[in-house]
Amino acid sequence: MVKDLLTLEALSAAELWELLKRGNYYRQRLDKGEKAGKELRGKTVANMFFEPSTRTRMSFELAAQYQGAHIINFTHQGSSLVKGESLLDTAWNIEAMAVDCMVIRHGTSGAVKQVADNVQAAVVNAGDGKHAHPTQGLLDILTIWRHKGRVEGLKVVIVGDVLHSRVARSNIQGLTKLGAQVVVTGPATMLPDAADWPVEVETDFDRAIDGADCVNVLRIQKERQEQGLFPSQKEYFKFWGVDENRLTRDILLLHPGPMNRGIEINGGAADGPNSAIFDQVTNGVAIRMAVLSLLNERGGH
């Protein structure tokens, strides 16, 4: 593992397991109410979000605080970027304030890597464009592992706008490296050219979900309809929406949030017994504690 966490693709199975096990340890600590860790004492983490986020930003913030780090937040609104400063200049300025770790979200694929390649600080990718969202992938896998007791041999279905989803890409990379079978499904207009991806592509949700252990439901952005990718919310829900009737067995239900109830998922499913959606959020804090502490130990900070 180098100084940064940019994708799950770059990690070996052993490195993934190291993070997952450490995430599980922090989850157990959180469940006991232990939030006064000292792993990052004296370190400074900068949250740099060039795209709106609530859940991920708060999750990183708490993860740093629970380990005793200083944390500063930078948001796009009202920043020097609006005044025309380049991304790299912004990053160098923040680094010059003795920041040890940058957590970066950016709307452009590859932008976070560009910063990582040009700073000494450790960089954690909190989502770049359509490319990668490694901590979301890790928290999804941690949730699956904790519920199913294993990852290898499981069949995981990812349903929705896979084409535009960094969450899907990170899940696919992590899960397949750990031996799970991944099937992506959704309207043909929202599925990637997966010719060299280690996944199965299936437009029929019923066939995709047959024998599945887990279904990860992606958020459907309403503007995709205006872009001509699907006809209506009604038709989308009919063919690819997740309701409780699709969850007949012990299929674990995940959703990275925020949910559009009634479009890609209904209340019966989201609030039903199969749902681990709020458990994912807690695991999100735990896995980010694991990532920050491990990067710190590796000397990136």
Partner: peptide, 14 residues
């Protein structure tokens, strides 16, 4: 397309 307008796909599946 909806209304034959050539803009949005109609509900082909339904």
């Amino acid at each position: 397309t909806k209304g034959l307008e050539g803009k949005e796909i109609a509900e082909l599946g339904l």
